[in-house]
Amino acid sequence: MITIRNVTKRYGKTEVVKNFSLEVAPGESIAMWGPNGAGKTTVVRCILGLVAYEGTITVGGLDARRYGKSVRKAMGYVPQELSFYDEMTVYELLDYAAALRGISQDRVDHLCEVVVLTEHVNKQVRELSGGLKQRLGIASALLPDPPILLLDEPTSNLDAQARDAALELLQGLRDDGRTLIVTSHHVEEIAMLVDRVVAMEHGEITVICDPSDLAEELGLRAWLHLILENGSAEHALQVLTDLGFPTKLNSRGVLVEVSAQGKGEAVAALQRAGVEIKDLEIWR
């Protein structure tokens, strides 16, 4: 469905995407994961033709550079945040996006119902919460009922409740058989949404794998900061050290280094040893 070959993007002398190649099958959902500045958003912008690049991108067999309008007609794009057209109402923005695609107003009404925005249609965009803006972005992207959706950090800036709602909506879209490309720097949030994760760093692909294998593939580690009952830190340190966990004491408790998927093991060991954990934080 989407073929990206040897795409390189430079801003001045800095290469933000380096020789990037990826094949996305029809109906497949892909997460591009990496820290800020990894080049995920730039790849999406290359696919949309928003930036100039070296290399080739074809979508449905059409060259994205030469047939930009045709390619974009088949794609819906959800930006990271709708921070523009603030004066427009929800309905006006969707009506404008529909007019740009030659789509009827009935479709606007229908999508407002689908993404549960109907009661907000007369609100100005500036009045919407992050979650509602996200839904508005998704509604706008779904106007042409596109086979391909590009979502740029769809869960950033959302609280837990809004994030769950957005993920549920996106899961439904994936189940419809759409091709999804999602960028995120919180892969654990979108792992259940995608078939493959493309991990990126400094503009390059570091690994492509199943989402459940990502932590193992990248050797991801995390620090658990355990806040303990007074006087139990020394005992906890001993228990964890005996089990081979790298540990440190700090003023408020114990720091223990764990694999990204092994956080429960350390907690369970302490509970078995009778150490009461008052609170815990995960540091990456």
């Binding site: 109906g27 030469r66 045709s70 088949a74 086979p147």
Partner: peptide, 14 residues
């Protein structure tokens, strides 16, 4: 929502 199709129709670029 409708099912998807992998082919993309070519429209006018003018």
């Amino acid at each position: 929502m409708t099912a998807t199709t992998p082919s993309i129709p070519q429209t006018t670029e003018r």
